[in-house]
Design a protein around this nucleic acid. Structure first.
Lengths: 259, 259
DNA sequence: TGCCCACTAGTTGCATGCAACTTGATTAGA
DNA sequence: TCTAATCAAGTTGCATGCAACTAGTGGGCA
């Protein structure tokens, strides 16, 4: 194939689903591939602990090694894969310790962000939040649409907080966490509980009651993460203890855990 | 016959388990270049708002476009440059809004991490912290050694907290902030104040008094960021207000600001 | 004069070439 | 038989080639 001097037919691979953002070419190939690799890890098409070469991934996703490498570098930064020099990229397994770290970070950031949002959000944010909540209630079957709305709702709140950097970082955390969590949480967390939690958060925000919104978000995060950590396959004793410790760190002294 | 006609001398492999200790080539060229570009931005050799091509940067740093591109992608993720398609990479200016966002994130994360560290740190951490504090006191001229020790001290605490992901993220924040901050802070913050702050933090940690350590860290961060935000060249009114708002968000209800 | 279009210079994004490195299998030797 | 050196296959990391794209310029035309 190096012989063809003329125009090679650009190999356009039919992208397997996922949302096609506005313009196809606006997103660089490396970004597309990063997203595809993430999805492949999530669905198990790429197995944890296994080494993959950039050539193999390139063939699988219809690209050359360069954009694949760029995607892998990005994913390595996010902690999803580990690049081993001259060996390949290893998909990292669901690390119980990592799950606790991610959950702790969310717990430290999202409740205060919620409080901040209550102080500066606009009525337009109210409408957007209500819309997502409505979708969640409609699609209460815990399908992909439900989770997409969940995702957007959290993101709306974070962006309404006024700290875009915070919003971006927590979005990354959520993406990484979803790799481990999405498979297990819906089985253990009743949808109605999650719906009630989100309803409480949105309601408090609508009233611009920052303290209540913060508390509701904290409750929601703790409840979700509790299940996540408890059902991590590894040794749970130390893990659960560590997670409880971070709850303690993140909890204001006066507030009580009431479930 | 196969008596090694082209034997290269590098073939010596005494023990299969030995890994190279901090070999220079252990760090990839793209990482080196990312660091060099960051330094060049800090020192002003690369000017804010200006477009640079990867070829130019490659020549300046002695590499081809590929590792430069990888470095730029990484820096773009960190928010230091903006890659404009088919145009180049623009060095982003010191955005006042961004400074507030970065400071707010540190304020939300580092004090709780401090409290966590007090709960799980070991006597070895005590020694390391004391060593860095001693260096800071020796090099109280606010030179690079002083700031390096400052940096390491903060990092030690964060890693002692037990949440490596948090430590890594805050380290990134600090790196980015240093671009805007390091030039201005030492001129405004008296070294003895900073020394006292750090002394208080380390002392509280030594006593394993998490609450005091958390408070001391919060005080230190607020004091530093106050100066940083106040001296940002842009319109300060809104900026300072925003920063005060985040202090409020991050402050436990009972605690008072006492300077 | 003023407007439009093609052209040129320059850049990215992706594909590919190449040397160094890692590792498992094979072969020579004791 | 068992050990150790050697080879071969495969991979990365970096360099380079190439088509597509952008923006600014100058000339032609109304």
């Amino acid at each position: 194939m190096p012989s063809g001097p003329g125009s090679r037919p650009l190999r356009v691979r039919p992208v397997p689903g996922i949302l096609l953002t506005s313009d196809a070419s606006a997103e660089s190939k490396s970004e597309q591939i990063a997203a595809e690799i993430r999805d492949a890890i999530r669905t198990g098409q790429l197995q944890r602990g296994v080494l993959y070469s950039s050539r193999e991934l390139g063939e699988r996703f219809g690209a050359s090694r360069t954009p694949v490498r760029e995607a892998l570098l990005r994913l390595a930064d996010l902690g999803l894969v580990k690049i081993e020099r001259n060996r390949g990229a290893r998909v990292l397994g669901p690390d119980g310790r990592g799950v606790v770290e991610l959950c702790s970070l969310r717990l430290l950031l999202e409740p205060p962000a919620c409080r901040s949002a209550a102080a500066v959000m606009t009525s337009r944010d109210d409408d957007l939040l209500a819309a997502e909540l409505a979708i969640m209630r409609e699609r209460a079957d815990a399908g992909p649409e439900y989770f997409a709305a969940d995702e957007r709702l959290h993101d709306l709140i974070l962006r309404a907080s006024g700290n875009l950097r915070l919003a971006k970082f927590v979005a990354e955390l959520r993406q990484t966490l979803a790799l481990d969590g999405r498979l297990s949480v819906p089985r253990y967390q009743p949808v109605e509980t999650a719906l009630r939690d989100h309803g409480d958060i949105v309601e408090a925000l609508r009233k611009r009651d920052g303290v209540a919104a913060e508390r509701a978000m904290r409750k929601h995060l703790i409840r979700s993460a509790d299940l996540l950590v408890a059902n991590t396959s590894e040794d749970n004793r130390g893990l659960v203890g560590e997670w409880r410790r971070w709850i303690d760190v993140a909890m204001p002294s006066g507030e009580q855990l009431t479930f």
